[in-house]
Design a protein around this nucleic acid. Structure first.
Lengths: 356, 356
DNA sequence: AGCACGACTGGAAACCTTTTCAGGAGTGGC
DNA sequence: GCCACTCCTGAAAAGGTTTCCAGTCGTGCT
């Protein structure tokens, strides 16, 4: 293995000079000398030892990412975003699938710390364990101690993350989409209120209504479980209400998909009878019929944003938390409001309370 | 940042002793001393510097994986397999998405070499470029020079890879599945013969026929493009032949999906009219109707197999190339042969040449 | 009792690079 | 012609760990 001194010998210069020629930000070296060094390095197929450099610099250009599972389409998009941003700066990306097992996560962080990774990004492994939190806190301190940066990403909620999405604005825009389509009575299927993300999205719903000058009707908000079954139950509850509505905005896609399935069962067509929207843009959203109009999470941008946040941290600046904008993806699940009432052709289009 | 000498001081011993206590394979140290060291390390939250260790050992417990795109469901399964095997040995996994760009791949390998990754796995980035090959060859030599291991994985073909799948045996088993269902005339849609994988699978088809004592009929083998359009064209060609068949084995799933779509267009039902099989088990295979009976690539096993191969290499042994077995996944696209002829109920079930 | 041996521990070198400090050479101006 | 300055280069230290080589101490055997 050729080292820098071998190159120095071959070029007839000192190792210091070789280092100067080959370092990332080239330093003043005579042209002839530089050429000799470059030639020697080429001849010896010299690749600098990043470990030695890292030992000196106290960390190595590597970013470690802790995810739940790299196989999950969400996380590998995030990882790809990180990689794209990181590789252009000469960093390598280590992916760690914790499988939501606390010990695995801790041992991964420890490993990343042991190789002195410049950046460690937590991309939402979703483990809630006090012991783990303490350990992570200790490691975070340790990582910062050697000059590394620690960043938390949250694809679903902002919360304590340095980079997250503007759930509220996203929900507000999709409500606007519904309003623009003519809807005046928009129901809302919400998730468990204890979750940060749920509260953010609910706030967005209210903001969207307010922006359109529509009243907020608490009755039209159903709190249910964050899955498709919850969506079905939510629909049942809404239909049993003593009020009408022409659209249902859901706090996530799973809820929306469950709602659509239930509506279908009940003979209510989407979007002709009722319009439905989701949030997240999971794969299924584009695969069901009709396609679900939803809000897409900018996963790659979150990844690259996370790396860039860390890069600023490393550069010594004090970056601000980053809220990423969300994009509404229009598919087939939103149609004009009340086509029936207006055209009086399809009596089933507006669902009235007790209509079942 | 606490170093080994801080721990040594606190414990009142020499750094050498601390190293002995904390090293992976513990060495003889007095019980009292060991306890003091452990306590000191805990108190200081000491995490050994893997860079310093790596500098000495000449490489670091990291495996780098070069893939086309980590977002591709195939590759992230492979990466996950590598990670599972690697992490249990204390290795970290770096994923590198080359996007099939030669420069990116070269720069990634160079980077992996610069941090002295113990293992570099090429998981089929699929770039065919002589300049790149030369560069990779040089880097491979360099990596071996510092004691690292280089392994090539091939999810689709064995070829020059150290770990691959037994395409021929896989195709033979799926042909057997067809034969077991009663098929005697099995056509074959093949891909471009210049590809290694194509030739292997074709050989498997012939072997499968031979094992069943069935004659190989060259007319029933159609060479076409490796995509769904090729599948459609292949079906057209087969139907124009002056011969009959009751099943079509395809060299990959894309071909099979194209073939099924074309058969559907022509009014031929699968599997009632004709049985169809694929190869690879891509996601779509399970999502179309009827589900495609196909051969599943053991992606995780390939990943873990690749790491284990490398681990043996590092341990100094000379491992043998590994051929992984393939599993037939039975879904709905294979049915009994010629139910029509026998029951004389559904005249459309067997397709005769010129029947269109 | 003396010797040999084993168990345990310490000292120091080595791994490779970067960076600081300083020195040397050359040049331009007075 | 000399001084000051710039530009370029070299020497050496530092970063944290492992391991080889010794050295010490205690114990068991003769």
């Amino acid at each position: 293995m050729a080292s820098i001194v071998d190159v120095a010998k071959l070029a007839g210069v000192s190792p210091a000079t070789v280092s100067r020629v080959l370092s990332t930000r080239p330093q003043p070296v005579g042209d002839a000398t530089r050429a000799r060094v470059l030639e020697a390095a080429r001849a010896l197929d010299f690749v600098p030892n990043a470990l030695a450099r890292g030992l000196l610099k106290s960390h190595v250009p590597v970013v470690g990412v802790i995810v739940h599972d790299i196989t999950d389409p969400y996380f590998n998009e995030v990882v790809r975003g990180i990689e794209d941003a990181a590789s252009s700066e000469g960093y390598l990306v280590i992916t760690c699938s914790s499988d939501r097992v606390a010990e695995r996560e801790e041992s991964y962080v420890r490993l990343l710390r042991s190789i002195r990774a410049a950046v460690v990004i937590f991309a939402g492994s979703g483990i809630d364990d006090p012991g783990l939190s303490r350990a992570i806190g200790r490691h975070t301190e340790g990582i910062r101690a050697y000059g590394g940066a620690v960043v938390h990403l949250s694809p679903h909620a902002f919360g304590a993350a340095e980079v997250g999405v503007d759930n509220s604005a996203g929900m507000a825009s999709i409500v606007k989409t519904l309003v623009d389509a003519g809807h005046r009575k928009v129901a809302y299927l919400s998730g468990p209120t204890r979750l940060f993300v749920t509260r953010e999205r609910l706030a967005g719903y209210r903001a969207g209504l307010a922006a359109a000058g529509l009243p907020f009707e608490p009755r039209l908000v159903i709190e249910t479980a964050f899955n498709s079954d919850g969506g079905a139950k939510g629909v049942d509850k809404l239909l049993s209400l003593d009020t009408s509505f022409t659209a249902v905005a859901c706090a996530n896609d799973l809820l929306a998909i469950g709602a659509m399935a239930r509506l279908d069962q009940l003979g209510v067509r989407v979007p002709d009878g009722i319009s439905v929207t989701g949030f997240d843009d999971i794969r299924q959203a584009g695969e069901i019929v009709p396609g679900l109009t939803t809000v897409r999470l900018p996963l790659r941008d979150m990844g690259s944003g996370g790396f860039e946040y860390a890069a600023r941290l490393l550069a010594g600046s004090r970056p601000r938390r980053q809220l990423l904008d969300l994009e509404v993806i229009e598919r087939g699940s939103v149609g004009p409001a009340n086509p029936v009432r207006r055209t009086a052709r399809r009596p089933r289009a507006t669902v009235m309370a007790g209509a079942r």
